[in-house]
């Protein structure tokens, strides 16, 4: 249907034009990051790098053991994304598919918890982390990130599970499959596109989180990447070239993840899952 080359061309051109506008601030960031000695922003504006070099990238990577921050952030984000997504999918699945005592209450409590600004919790959470002996531990950060992901992911995945037609699962039920089979073999594979979305969002959430990381970690050799990024912004002056270079380095893993994962956001996965 609609395979019309002229229509596709028009669609492509519109999307491309809009994409150029969208990419502009990002482009500008890249230009500044490639400019050596770019310690401040210029006027009149410079739209193309004039002395392009990767000096700022080398400088940013070498400053302050950037590699260490990078690896710690990777560890924290990967583990919390795995835990948070899996746990939330389980909740979303039963909330979407079954009636049971407390179903609405749980769903609404999750929803309401997202409506209270997280900043309010910072002091109580700090005391809680201290009481539980989780301060200054990366696994403490993992636990609190996981908890932070659960309401959002449950809400997101419940929406997707709701949109999946029931009939597709009936075959498995007829065969006498358990809820676990239904969840692991049918619902999750069918929800692959949304699962990918949830994983991308959650990973980014952990990867980008600054306030809790800085508040709950006390030892510089535990600090994560977003803290390192803020070091490029000094009290009185900011090294714009290195700041932007570091910010772009920070986006690299998510770009790679996105390019790999977005393949799964295509039609046909659902059909395959049902047949398989």
């Amino acid at each position: 249907m609609w395979v019309n080359s002229r229509a596709t061309t028009i669609r492509f051109l519109i999307l491309l034009t809009f994409a150029i506008i969208m990419a502009f601030p990002f482009w500008y960031m890249a230009v500044v990051s490639l400019e050596p000695n770019q310690l401040s922003l210029q006027y009149p504006p410079v739209l193309f790098p004039q002395h392009a070099s990767f000096g700022n990238y080398v400088g940013a990577w070498q400053a302050n053991n950037f590699a260490g921050y990078f690896m710690r952030s990777l560890y924290v984000s990967v583990v919390s994304t795995f835990l948070g997504t899996l746990i939330a999918c389980a909740v979303a699945f039963v909330v979407s598919r079954y009636r049971f005592f407390g179903r609405n209450a749980i769903y609404r409590a999750f929803l309401v918890s997202m409506m209270i600004p997280g900043m309010t919790f910072l002091l109580p959470q700090f005391k809680l982390m201290e009481t539980l002996g989780l301060l200054n531990h990366l696994y403490g950060l993992i636990l609190i990130y996981t908890a932070g992901m659960i309401p959002f992911t449950t809400f997101l995945m419940k929406g997707f599970f709701d949109d999946i037609p029931l009939e597709l699962e009936d075959a498995v039920l007829m065969d006498g499959g358990s809820k676990w089979t239904l969840f692991a073999r049918v619902a999750m594979p069918m929800a692959t596109p949304s699962l990918v979305t949830a994983v991308l969002f959650n990973f980014m959430g952990g990867w980008d989180e600054f306030t809790m990381a800085l508040t709950f970690l006390q030892n510089p050799n535990k600090f994560t990447l977003p803290i390192a990024l803020m070091f490029f912004q000094g009290q009185h002056s900011t090294q714009w070239g290195e700041f932007f270079a570091a910010a772009l380095i920070q986006t690299a893993p998510i770009i790679i993840m996105f390019v790999i994962f977005q393949r799964y956001i295509v039609k046909g996965i659902m059909a395959g899952a049902v047949k398989g």
């Binding site: 209270i116 959470q125 809680l128 908890a147 659960i150």
Partner: peptide
């Protein structure tokens, strides 16, 4: 469990 400990208590 996660929700009660890390979210509900601070709220």
């Amino acid at each position: 469990a996660f929700f009660l400990v890390f979210t509900t208590y601070p709220i």
